[in-house]
Design a protein around this nucleic acid. Structure first.
Lengths: 321, 321
DNA sequence: TGCTGGTACTCAAACGTTCTAGCAGCTCGG
DNA sequence: CCGAGCTGCTAGAACGTTTGAGTACCAGCA
């Protein structure tokens, strides 16, 4: 049987003649090596784990699609799981990935790099963090993320140019944020431009963000923010709903800047001004990084930063007088 | 070692005392059975394959989320793959699922039940078709789908009540449609109500549907359809774009009925009238069917039909005079 | 006492691959 | 003409688990 293995795996030690014959009969029999046996023997499962904090977030849809396409192209299967924004579940799922012998891990973490750390410590296998620019810098993990600094700078700049003085940033709690640098940048740029800026911390779900926004929008007119920047179009939709609930019109009473440019954001009423991101590319490059590492190909960089470009549409306007 | 196996797997033939001790030391050592070895020995991988025709379709996002949640709850991992609307790729991926020893398959087929048939023939393992009401009736596979007949009846009824006389249904090519019954129903109901109805066949992608729509909307005013029914909100968005391209206003010049109620459809301008579907439940029940079959639990039905309820919003109005 | 039947446990085979060691047979240099 | 080194192939161990066969022990019964 060993000659067969050598023949099929393109390894030396077998004559061209035998190789061809083995190939032929394997094809005739429709032979497919048993993946479990291969995995058991080689300790490689040709499987990549994808652990997303929120599988129902449309943002990750294209990321996953790109990721899956690249993996499938190299014969890797994708095991997808969702941590449902639950740190404990994230750790638990990461451990099942270890038990399953997953070859590499792509992680959109709930917050913190604990899971990524444990994964890397116990397996030593390639890891990529999706959209977590500042996380696990001490860890030898890779990263693909959007340049949040430039993004926030663009958003604040745009709003300031329109004349806004009181801005708010809707953001995840600092300790759990996948990209705390955004909040830092927001405060820095706001200070530089001598504006007032408040950070509205909330869990990144519609259910949690709604009340937070209601509280802000219900403030007296002279202290209420006239523009809200969000870290996702997903949340921008929530802002739309909250504004409608408070009887505020967008953009007349409130300007909104989203982030991600989800396919439907252009179709909203009004069309959402947002920071467009090539989501699919995030997935594609993440998969590329992992595959390079798995194949021991030298990789140019461990940290891919993708640009966000401001798309001015209808949800931003000068503030109400 | 066998006693250990018996102890950990809750099987008889081992004393309570030993079982407890084994459990304890296993926990102390952080022991996790090697999944590949178990799979090799038992021919069960505790893995379920999910093969979607289009992973970037938001419709499947919640389906996948629900499906994954249920599977994870029972210790099954999910292997996700996208066939990209390619029949050949669908078959190929299905075969890699076989080689990987996947325990069950959930399939949102490109069209036809060839892949499902081959899967079931060679593995005999549980299968569920997602959203393919009329496919593979001869096969002993399960199905979760939306009641397309009732849905189309509601849509046509609503438009007829508004006064529309010329309707169009945007649909996949008949041979490849996951639910050809919709087209049949459309023609039947239109005939019953003495309306004129045309079926616009197109691949279910934005790129393909755009031109098809342009052709229809560019027709002379008196023969052009005044209302378009689509099989997805996804396509309804495309209709919005095509209408804008032809200078037609919705709903004044053209009424549109979607299907699915994607989260953003309510936020479109105008808000989309659509047939709401509980997508997550599709995934949840599909996973339930598979898990029941895997556990040899008797299952009440092999064919779950979920209702679609018409949500009248702003994209439908009486036809232009 | 001896036999039966059950319980608790141990041994070793088996799952389907990969991989190491070994064995022929051949070539080549001395 | 012999040993060293290479090539092509084979036998068998190994991966980590489950499982069927086998063994030791004990209770119950005649």
């Amino acid at each position: 049987m060993s000659a067969v293995s050598l023949a099929l795996n393109d390894r030396s030690g077998v004559s061209e003649d035998l190789r061809a014959r083995v190939r032929q009969t394997a094809a005739d029999l429709g032979y497919r090596p048993n993946t479990s046996a291969v995995a058991l023997r080689t300790r490689r499962s040709r499987t990549i784990g994808l652990l997303i904090r929120n599988l129902s977030n449309p943002f990750f849809l294209d990321v996953i699609e790109g990721f899956e396409t690249v993996c499938a192209g190299s014969g890797y299967a994708l095991i997808t799981a969702s941590s449902h924004y639950d740190l404990r579940r994230e750790t638990e799922l990461m451990r099942t990935f270890i038990a399953r012998g997953v070859d590499a891990l792509a992680l959109a973490p709930v917050g913190g790099s604990r899971a990524a750390g444990e994964w890397h410590r116990t397996t030593g296998r390639p890891t990529v963090l999706l959209n977590a620019a500042r996380l696990g810098r001490a860890l030898p993990v890779m990263r693909t993320h959007v340049d949040g600094v430039a993004a926030v700078e663009q958003a604040v700049g745009h709003l300031a140019d329109l004349g806004h003085r009181r801005l708010a940033l809707l953001s995840a709690p600092r300790r759990r944020s996948p990209d705390p640098e955004r909040a830092d940048t927001f405060l820095r740029v706001v200070a530089e431009r001598r504006l007032s800026g408040r950070i509205l911390e909330t869990e990144l779900t519609a259910a949690a963000a709604g009340p937070t926004l209601d509280a802000e929008l219900a403030r007296p007119r002279r202290s209420r923010a006239t523009a809200v920047i969000t870290n996702s179009d997903h949340l921008a939709h929530v802002v739309y709903a909250a504004a409608a609930g408070q009887g505020l019109r967008i953009p007349d009473d409130l300007s909104v800047v989203g982030h991600d440019d989800l396919p439907t954001s252009a179709l909203l009423a009004p069309p959402l001004t947002t920071l467009a991101v090539d989501r699919r590319t995030i997935g594609v490059t993440a998969a590329g990084l992992l595959l390079d590492a798995l194949a021991d190909r030298p990789t140019a960089t461990r940290d891919v930063s993708l640009p966000a470009t401001l798309l001015v549409r209808g949800s931003t306007a000068p503030p109400p007088r």
